[in-house]
Structures are given as structure tokens and as C-alpha cells.
Amino acid sequence: MYTTELDKQKQPPEGANVTAIDGAEDPALVEAFEARVAADEFIEPKDWMPEAYRKTLVRQISQHAHSEIVGMLPEGNWITRAPSLRRKAILLAKVQDEGGHGLYLYCAAETLGTSREEMIEALHSGKAKYSTIFNYPTLTWADIAAIGWLVDGAAIMNQVPLQRASYGPYARAMVRVCKEESFHQRQGYEAMLVLANGTPEQKRMAQDAINRWWWPSLMMFGPPDDQSPNTERSMRWRIKRETNDELRQKFVDITVPQAEFAGLTVPDPDLSWNEAKGGYDFGEIDWEEFYAVVRGEGPVAKERMKARRDAWEDGAWVREAADAHEAKKAARKVA
């Protein structure tokens, strides 16, 4: 899964004051850095980088990592109820992959000097954001198919370009993530096709799932370009390679024919093919809802955060025990 950058609360995010921060830095270093990025070179952890670049990356990568971890919850909700052994194994493997993605991404972010504990603390305190999509509930088995098909489908749109992101550890993590996401999207669509061609009850579940997940999936690409103040700088820094609206349009153009093939109706009365632009026109997204969910007011936002905090707090004694055991072992070695 992937979240586009989410600090879009209509005020400049922390560290966004590029002029002030960059102003304090050696102009020659900044210039050399900008030139390397413009030449599509990778920036590595030990390389010099502007403080704003570092901060923006930590925020973006950790948001992405948090999204993977919180994203385990809506799907995890159905592992124990998967309807066949094959589906159970696929879902368990998929959710495990998401956990693995979270791990590579936390590691990539740690190379920028912020510890995993600090990032997790920021998530639990509500300071750090994660993808809005995971604040919606998974009500039926078809939601699992819809998440694979639509949510992972949207994630791939976002992530494929990031394999060329300027920060080396991030780009390399994305290469691995994309391979797995592609499998996730395909299994989701395949599961959806089975439902859409199944019994009347299964068809009902399938249509209900696309009705609920379509618009939140489009919101995953973030606010429209004219309200995305950091886009220009992030594109210049090659940590964002296509704009929110470009990616959203690509997603709609690819996904609508898939829905039609499955015999499902996209819940948008304004959806129509536009021959001139070679893509679909689609209806207005409810941005009020989007910003409300970003603020933490999504339907199951409280449940998601509680589940993460509980897991962390309930597991504290295990982590402490592991540290204590390591320390004892080390002490015995010395003695």
C-alpha cells in the first residue's frame, strides 16, 4: 500500500519553509545536490542533502511505512474468516508482505537519522499520518477482494514511479515492494471476478464493496494538484515523479474497463469516456470527507489507532525481555 504525502491540512507542514532552511545551507552544496538530482543520480545516506529534503523524505517514507502497518488491520480482520484454505493462505501471505514492506520502509527512513521508535511514537501520538484508505471498515469478504484490486491497484500507480525516486534506499525498497504489490492487485481482482460471477449474494457483496471503496480509492492519490503546495518541490527533488491528478487519471482509465469486464458498476453517474483526452471524465471527489479522514475522523480511525497502540503497549514487556536477555548474554560473554 502507499499513501501519497498527506500533510495537506491547508497549512504549511513542518519543515516546509524551504527558503529559511536552505538559506542556512552552503549554496554550493545545495547547487551540487540539485544538479545530481536533476541528473537522476541516486542520493545515498552518507551524501550531503538539504535538511528540508531529509525531513520531507522522513515524513513521506514513514507515512508510507505506517500505512503498510495500519493497512495490515483491515485485511487482518478477515484472515480468520477467509472462506477457503487457499484464500486464507493468500491473504495471510499478503498481509505478511505488507508487514515486510513496513519493515523495509522503516529501515529506509532510519538511514535518514530517525529511529523506528521515534516514527512509531509519532504514529501513536497522532502526529504522523497514514493513508486515509485504512480508516474505512472491511464489512464483507468482498472488501478483501476490493482492497486487493482497487487499493493495491492505486498503490501500484503511486509506487511504480517511486522506483526512480532520488533517494537510493527508498527507490530500492520500492523495487521490491512493487513486485509484491503487483501480485496483490492481481489476486484481488481475481477474487473479485469470482464473486462477481458467483451467487446472487456474492454479486451483491461485490457491488456493495466497489460502491464503498471506489471513492476512497480515488482519494488515495491525495488532494488535487492546485491544492498540493509541495508537489512542485517534491517533483524537482525526484521524490514524487507524477502529480496526484495525473496518477488518479491513470488509475481511473485502467480500472474502469476492469470493472466493466467484471460486470460491476462504478458508482459515479458522471463517469464517461472523453475521446478528445483519451481518458475518462469522472465526478467530483468529496474533498470534505478526505480532509476529515486526514484529520483522523475516518469511520474506523479510532479503532485502527487503538489496535496499533494496544499491540505496541501489550508487547512492551516482550521487547523489554528480549533486550534484557541480550544484555545478560553479552554480560556473560564478558565474564
Binding site: 508487514g99 499491540a311 508487547g315
Partner: peptide, 15 residues
């Protein structure tokens, strides 16, 4: 074991 998924004491343990 699958009941633990997403709720383990650490990410590595979850995996």
C-alpha cells in the same frame, strides 16, 4: 497463529 496478524509485540515477531 493467524489471529496474531497485525497485533504482535514487534513487526519482526508479526512476520
Amino acid at each position: 497463529l493467524s489471529e496474531w496478524c497485525g497485533h504482535a509485540p514487534a513487526l519482526e515477531v508479526d512476520l
